[in-house]
Amino acid sequence: MSRQGLFDAYRVSQVRVENDRTRTLVFESPLPESYPGQYVMAWLPGIGEKPFSISGNDPLALTVADVGPVSHALSLVRPGERVWMRGPLGKGYELISQSHLLVGGGYGAAPLSLLARQARTIGHSVTVVLGAKTRDDLMMVAAFEELGCAIYLTTEDGSAGVRGLVTDVIEQACMEQHQGCIYACGPTGMLTAVGKAAQLLELPAQLSFEALIRCGVGLCGSCELPEDLCLTLGISPGFLVCHDGPVARVN
């Protein structure tokens, strides 16, 4: 068995503020052989261990929203301090076709920013739909702009972009540019809606799900996607977010 299962200590080199409650931790070294959509289990000894999608791999970067004990402790980590990682874990996104629609809710923007970078580096066209509750909750808009992505914004209160949900603009984004595949990351409700929209548009979609990840190696069963959700989206039942995912392919 490889080192994949054990922890390596990574030292933080820089902390970037993304919004009120979200920080990106940039580390000193790369995460070898990792790709967009994969995650690491980040461990702070004595505090806890949680999964985080990689938002950069060379050097490693994690984008953390402060919502509870572990994420709070991570957002207090300063340059020079260490975080322990095991990974990369799971199966990430795979770029298919040449033109891509990325859909992110909340910190879902983080893994998608790495995917956008990969696609733009090889000259593919990328459209991004970012959704949040309010203007202040939106994040990484500038990063996607710098990469040369076409951007659509939605907010639930209408303080920026279109008032509503990401799914309200997906169809329009697809009409304006010919999209080959939809790649999404965000809360389960959003992913379900995006998956259904993709079915109507007859586009393949790659959806990155969250679940309670415990072992992270496909043994304990705690991260299984509910069977009814699998059946709704045409994912084969018994899907393990930690090992078969987090990215599930539909259509």
């Binding site: 054990l6 289990m41 949680k50 190696v217």
Partner: peptide, 11 residues
């Protein structure tokens, strides 16, 4: 967590 790890000898 951590509740499980894979290492050189197994789990």
């Amino acid at each position: 967590n951590p509740v499980a790890l894979a290492w050189q000898g197994g789990v």
